[in-house]
Design a protein around this nucleic acid. Sequence first.
DNA 1: GGGCGCATGTAATGAGTTACATGATTGA
DNA 2: TCAATCATGTAACTCATTACATGCGCCC
Lengths: 184, 184
Amino acid sequence: MEDERALLLLGILRRQDMHGYRLHEFIDTNLAVCADLKKATAYFLLDKMAAEGWVSYEQVQEGNRPPRRVYRITPAGEQAFQRLIRANLATYASMRFPGDVGLAFLDDLKPTEAVHLLRQRRAAMLDALTALQSAPEHAGTAQLIIEHQRRHLAAELDWLDEVIARVEAKSRKTRSSGRRASSP
Amino acid sequence: MEDERALLLLGILRRQDMHGYRLHEFIDTNLAVCADLKKATAYFLLDKMAAEGWVSYEQVQEGNRPPRRVYRITPAGEQAFQRLIRANLATYASMRFPGDVGLAFLDDLKPTEAVHLLRQRRAAMLDALTALQSAPEHAGTAQLIIEHQRRHLAAELDWLDEVIARVEAKSRKTRSSGRRASSP
DNA sequence: GGGCGCATGTAATGAGTTACATGATTGA
DNA sequence: TCAATCATGTAACTCATTACATGCGCCC
């Protein structure tokens, strides 16, 4: 079930009974930084968790609106939560960066163009960073995670700047060797 | 096709014709840091890329061994590579950290246990870091990416240490408020 | 001669997303 | 009245992984 998703849902339901639509809405607006699950997926997972006995639900009808399934965590679900959160906190999952694939072939581009492209990447990262800053005092829960994201982005910017600097250095060398020992 | 994988394969084939087995082997030993694709996936993708006309292959038989399909990039593949690498370098894909889900529910554990678990995570990260250091002068190509990974891990360690410190601070406060204003 | 490495592939499964279908309510 | 929001769900599809099947060569 991809542990984190289950942990996420259980953790939320543990604090508040909720129906699928609200749950998805909540994650999408408050926890988008740390998880992105689509509506269909949320419903699907709730179904599965109900089948496993981690949650139960009560059908609630208000007027003639579509009935809502209000989910509640069960004792088995609480147990699962306790297990999952411990596993999550104690573990480190190493990451792969999609952007690294490009770096692997950096040498196959002209240095000047490489630098140009990397500067575009840099601008995109800067945008992401300022977008984070402007998020106005997000719901207390997610504060830590936003801070984490901020830190990560800052480190990535540092790193990217160094990569750019290296490519520029190489570019200068190439040009000067083209001019055949211009400086002694 | 999940752009990075295609970029990866094209980038390698661009430098050298290769059959699927070698290709997978190469990625697995030299580029494991930045991509993890299984044998079956490699074969599957090569098939698809051949269908799209990005690569062609030549059946090579040596003695009575199983025949090898030696893939070669086509002009269309070269074009795709040029497009993909530019897109990759110019773009930043924001990341989600699986470990953040646990942090979202940190408050639901006793601070002492939370700290204990986070220290385990820290140890795992340290292991990963030393494993990186010991990789002895990896094939020049991947040098950048290993450096990136190293940087990332260092930043993550810093971050985790701060999280631990915060939880410990809260833990002290909790205990002292339990003793009812022990210090003025 | 028994097991590992080379070399390819298929079938089944899983996880998640897209796109669609439904139907009531609410607000412009 | 027309669109948007609320609320649920299904079906089709993609992508990748697991597990399996095959068969030769090589070395101990």
